[in-house]
Amino acid sequence: MQDNHNNEGGFVSNKTMEIVTALIILFFGAVVMWDSYRIGAGWGSDGPESGSFPFYIGLLIIISSVVTIFNAVRESDKDEFVGKGEFGMVMAVLIPAIIYVIAIDFIGIYVASAIFITVFMVWQGKFSILKSLMVAIPVNVFFFFMFEVWFKIPLPKAWLEAQFGY
């Protein structure tokens, strides 16, 4: 598998993950508060200003994540968040998915989808390439007709656009 380099730290404890997530949320809350304060978070003559609601929402986010961090630090939750093998399995979907989504920009959604389905089926499902193509191509041809031809919704096709004529 591909996750060899994740071995050492492969065991993420729930506690660590809990704290890291809460810190990210805390940061998000702070950003919300900061931008809301910038555009005005007071109570104007005719009700709250643009930033008032988001400002207090940001405040509540910060408070709740501080409590969560506090709880996480206090409790010694030694359970692991995700094991090594499990992490590998999750990455086995997530990384191809990310590559797929980026590829849409360069080779268009139909080609990217066909390649993605084929690769995934061969790699994870141990299907033969032929079988995989027999799923990937009809699915995408169907989507092509459905969106481009019947419903006239243009999906991204990148440089293939001119070839398709749609």
């Binding site: 989808s113 995934f120 994870q124 499902g125 141990k126 995408n140």
Partner: peptide, 10 residues
């Protein structure tokens, strides 16, 4: 699932 998962993702 190995067929359904990529199709769902698409």
């Amino acid at each position: 699932f190995s067929i359904i998962a990529p199709v769902i993702l698409v």
